[in-house]
Computed example of a mutant assay.
Amino acid sequence: MRDRSERRYLVPIAALFSGVLIVSLILAGKIVSLAGLTFSAAVIVFPLSYLFGDVLTEVYGYASARRVVWAGFAAQIVWIASYTAAAALPPAPFWPHQQAFETVLGSTPRIALAGMAAYLFGELANAYVLARMKLRTAGRFLALRLIVSTMVGQAIDTTLFVTLAFAGVFAFDELGRIGFGAWALKVAWEVAALPVSLPLIGWLKRAEGEDHLDRDTDFNPFHLGG
C-alpha cells in the first residue's frame, strides 16, 4: 500500500466534493415537477457527492471519507455565513437587484441548515454502510454495496432535508411526494452511474496502489483521526 503522503488524487476529489455541496445548496430552493415526480433541483448535481463519497470510502477507507465529509460540512458553514453577510450589506444605489438576490437565495439559511444536517448524517451513513459491507463481503460485490449504501444514506439524507427544509411550507402528502421523488431519482442516478463509478474506482485503486479495508477503524463519526 502506498504511503498516505503520496495519495495524488485525494485532494482533488475532496475539492470537487465540497464544490458539489455548495452548488447543491444554491439549487435546492427550486422545486421541480417532471414525469410525475416532484423533487428539488439539487438532484441535478447532489448525487455526485455520493459518488465521490463512495470513491473515497472504497479506495481510501472510512476514516479518510469521514474527514472529507466534515470538511464539506465546514464549507457549507462558510457558504451560510457568506450569504448572510452579503444579503445584509446595503446595495449600491445604482444596483436594483437586491430583491431578486434575496428572492432567489432568500431561503438559503433554512435550506442550508436542513441540507447540512441531512448531508452530514446521510454521507456518514453511506460511508459507514459501504465500509461495513466491504468488511463483511471481503471486498466483493462492489456494485451491490454501492447501491445499498446509497439507498440507506439517501433515505436518511432526503427524509431529514425535506422535513427540516419544507415542513410547514408544503402539506404532509406533498412532503412525501417530494421526498420519495428525490430519493428514487438519487438511487436511480447511482445505478445509472455504475458504468462510470466502477471503472473509476478500479482505476483509482490501481493508480493510488490502495484498496483500504477498515479492519481496525474507529467508526465513531466524530473521531477525525485514522
Rank of each mutant, 00 (worst) to 15 (best):
D3W: 00
P12R: 00
G19Y: 04
V20I: 15
V20A: 14
S24A: 15
L25T: 08
L27Q: 14
A28I: 12
G29Y: 00
G36E: 04
T38C: 01
F39D: 06
S40L: 15
S40P: 15
A42N: 05
V43R: 06
I44P: 04
I44H: 04
L51M: 12
F52V: 05
L56C: 03
T57M: 06
T57L: 03
V59Q: 10
Y60E: 06
Y62F: 12
A63F: 00
S64C: 00
A65H: 06
R67F: 07
V68N: 04
V69T: 12
A71R: 04
G72E: 00
V78R: 02
A85I: 11
L89R: 07
L89I: 08
P96T: 05
Q98V: 02
Q99S: 07
Q99K: 06
Q99W: 03
E102L: 14
S107N: 14
R110V: 11
A112R: 10
A114E: 02
A117M: 03
A125D: 00
A125Q: 00
N126V: 13
A127D: 02
R132E: 08
R132W: 12
L135V: 04
T137E: 02
R140V: 04
L142T: 13
L142W: 09
L144F: 15
R145D: 02
V148R: 00
T150M: 03
M151I: 15
G153L: 04
G153C: 03
D157M: 10
D157S: 12
T158H: 07
T159C: 07
F161C: 07
L164P: 02
A165W: 02
V169L: 08
V169R: 11
F170W: 12
F172R: 14
D173R: 14
E174R: 13
L175E: 05
R177S: 03
G179S: 04
A182N: 11
A184Y: 01
L194H: 08
P199N: 02
I201C: 13
W203K: 13
L204A: 10
K205F: 01
K205D: 05
G209A: 09
E210C: 13
N220A: 09
L224F: 01
L224V: 03
